[in-house]
Nucleic acid binder design. Structure first.
Length: 269
DNA sequence: AATATCGACAACCGCCTATAT
DNA sequence: AATATAGGCGGTTGTCGATAT
């Protein structure tokens, strides 16, 4: 037998999260940190799948998230990174502190894609569109000098993108990535390749910019005490919740929930 | 004012890999 | 070793507000 299922699909709520649900999830994570997501819904008193809780937390409730549109600089960085990484949004997001892969993906699809198309740049290959046409006719693009591509892009795009064609499929393997030797003088890209090496060394934590709510990993932005946790939440107008009670759980309730989880009973049954 | 269309973004779905059993 | 799930990821869809007709 394998693991236990993450949640029974019965009675699991879907759709937009309410302020009350957010409040419960925040309360729980701030109290207990990020533990096993499977257990979170029960322990936090939510009728949600653990996966949904994780997504809600990482994409919306994390305190280190920046809100609002990407800045020009961030947008430019996304374009550069996309030119070399393709649709690997999580890797791109790891380079933009406070931004999530989902947010970047959405911004790409709704803003950047159109912007590039308007500028005559293929958002997939980062090549000028007329070059794409030639490519389809002659299949000669593979021999197109990288420096020439970059010049074309810069002329067309007012220094947007430094693209190389690559990776039209987000799940493509590393063999589709450009030759790293081409970028050894580019600190940004060199850095990316180094990180890929880290991945291969089974050291994913080196690359990701995770927000771990473990006390030993708390950065300067992270609340280090309950009072501090409360203070950032109170500042967080986006939640639409101005009065987080922080009193819906106590040690007894959490222990009861843990016990019921272990015995297979749910706290809501 | 009512309806249609569009844009932005939150959330879900399904797949893949790592890992617990 | 085999099996099944957790967690993570990218693609897609759903929802809702803004704008146009």
């Amino acid at each position: 037998m394998g693991r236990q299922p993450c949640c029974d699909k019965l009675g699991v709520k879907k759709g937009p999260w309410t302020a009350e649900e957010d409040k419960k999830l925040i309360n729980f994570i701030l109290t207990n940190g990020q533990c096993c997501w499977r257990a979170v819904p029960k322990l936090a008193g939510l009728r949600r799948c653990g996966k949904s809780c994780r997504l809600r937390w990482t994409n919306y409730l994390r305190p280190d998230l920046k809100r609002g549109l990407l800045t020009e600089a961030e947008e430019q960085l996304v374009i550069d990174l996309h030119a070399h990484l393709g649709n690997r949004w999580s890797k791109i997001a790891a380079r933009l502190p406070g931004r999530t892969d989902n947010e970047i993906k959405n911004h790409w699809n709704t803003h950047i894609k159109k912007k590039l198309l308007k500028m005559g740049i293929d958002p997939v290959t980062h090549e000028p569109l007329h070059k794409e046409h030639e490519k389809s006719e002659s299949h000669a693009a593979d021999n197109f000098p990288e420096s020439e591509k970059m010049n074309q892009l810069q002329e067309t795009n007012n220094d947007l993108g430094s693209g190389s064609p690559e990776d039209q499929n987000s799940s493509s393997d590393e063999s589709n990535l450009p030759d790293r030797n081409l970028y050894e003088n580019d600190p940004l890209i060199s850095c990316l390749f180094r990180d890929d090496d880290h991945d291969q060394d089974n050291d994913p934590d080196q690359l990701q910019v995770p927000w771990e709510f473990q006390s030993e990993n708390l950065g300067s932005f992270c609340p280090t005490s309950w009072d501090e946790s409360c203070s950032w939440l109170l500042d967080c107008q986006d939640f639409g919740v101005h009065d987080f009670g922080f009193d819906c759980f106590n040690d007894v309730e959490i222990n009861n929930a843990l016990n019921s989880l272990e015995t297979g009973a749910t706290s809501e049954d």
